[in-house]
Amino acid sequence: MDKTKKKEASVSSALSAGLFQLPFYPMTYVKVLIQAGHEPLPPFRSRSLFGREQFFYPNNFSYMRYIYSVEGLTGLYRGIGMKIISHSVATFVYDKVNLMLEETEQIEQEEKKDKNDDKFIVFIKQSSKEITARCWGVVFSHPFHVMGLRCMAQFIGGETAYSSWNIFHNISEIYRSEGVLGFFSGLIPRLLFEASTIALTSSLAYLIKTYIYEDKDIDALIDLFSSLISNSITYPLSVVSTISCISGSALMAARPPRMLLYSSWIDIFRNLYENNELKRGASSFFRVYQPPNILQATGFSLGQVPTNRAQKYLSKSE
């Protein structure tokens, strides 16, 4: 009876975590399109915080306004179903694995005579447990994550190959064009992103709390600071993972002239590094303009090809 209640509570909390994505989804959607290299709106000249004159892309809210003008309110929630399912599955698996690891740890502690572990040992165990649980959540939720990202990327070409809610339709589409491996496109950089972010966050927080400022009243602030720093460092892996999930599909967003044909996620990382684009989408405001990558063989600008929808929107704005 108790086990059933725990399971129902876990499912309920996982679904709640998925539905929590709703208010913030448009911003997530815009971030994915920017990470994929889609910049439909032209840059403008302005001054930076330090007074330097340079070109900037319109901020994320302007990008959202553009999507709204093209597809309406529902267009801002393209792929929301897959996002909710992905996040719910990840949360559910994370909770279950975490519970299993805690039970195993309790059994080990009961068998030990000396139950007082060193502070560093406790830190290692907690970090390892968090990384393990999070990575299992990522693995099980990844196929839905891929479906969600491809739903979003459809906006670039105005396609309807992937559904926001029909899982079976998406499964058929991916399996038909890429086979089983298509469901796990971009999994390795995503796992690396999650694991490295947790490791850096916990390590930085541990060092600050142990050697710099030992005050439990501000532990939450230290954790937040550590998380912000770590996410900034590991963010390039998030960009690589997003592109990897979209790359290889039959979508226009994954084909030249909007995206190169990559052989692996390492190839994506190398290309973005060479073109100084590993921070795509990291900022919602003051988005510094990056000159497009001109392909020598064809002469077109990669990733910034204007669409008819963008041209109509700009003409109306004028």
Rank of each mutant, 00 (worst) to 15 (best):
A282Y: 15
E194Y: 12
I80L: 15
F123R: 03
F123I: 01
E110T: 11
K312P: 00
G158A: 02
F285K: 15
S202Y: 11
V288G: 00
L314W: 06
G137K: 05
A254N: 02
H145E: 07
S177P: 00
S202L: 14
F56W: 12
Y29N: 14
N293Y: 12
R45Y: 03
I212M: 11
C151M: 05
L224E: 13
T298E: 03
L261Q: 05
T210Y: 04
G299S: 07
S317I: 12
E194F: 10
A36Q: 14
P236H: 05
V305Q: 11
D215C: 09
D219Y: 09
H38L: 03
E274N: 10
A310L: 03
Q304L: 10
E108M: 02
R309G: 07
G186I: 10
K3F: 13
L192M: 13
K96F: 01
Y235N: 02
E130V: 02
L76W: 06
K31W: 11
P42Q: 08
I243W: 08
T91G: 01
A282F: 15
Y77A: 04
Y211N: 11
F286P: 02
S177G: 00
I198S: 10
E214T: 05
S238C: 06
I268L: 12
Y57G: 01
F193T: 03
F140V: 02
Y25T: 06
L207G: 09
N116D: 14
I188Y: 05
G75R: 13
S16P: 00
P40C: 11
L260I: 02
I198W: 01
V305D: 10
P42I: 09
L200Y: 07
T132N: 02
M82F: 04
E194M: 04
E318L: 14
I268P: 08
L237V: 07
A195L: 06
T234E: 04
F120M: 04
L261C: 05
T4Y: 14
L237K: 04
G157P: 08
M1C: 13
T28D: 11
K125C: 05
L76V: 03
Q296M: 11
S227M: 12
I67C: 10
G179T: 03
F20G: 14
I167P: 04
Q126T: 15
L33H: 03
Y273A: 13
Y162L: 00
R280M: 14
L314A: 06
E173W: 00
L251M: 06
S241P: 00
F61Y: 14
E39I: 01
I233N: 09
E111R: 15
F183H: 15
Q311K: 15
K113D: 14
I229A: 07
A9N: 12
P189D: 07
L228Y: 01
H38K: 03
R134S: 15
L76P: 02
F44M: 09
A220F: 14
I222C: 07
F56K: 04
E318H: 10
I156H: 05
D114N: 14
A90W: 06
F61H: 01
N293L: 12
H142K: 15
A297C: 05
I294P: 01
E108A: 12
L204V: 13
M252L: 09
A199D: 02
V240Y: 01
I107P: 00
K125H: 06
S16Q: 14
Q296H: 13
F183W: 07
C245P: 00
S164T: 11
A90T: 00
S241D: 02
Q54G: 05
T74W: 10
Q21M: 12
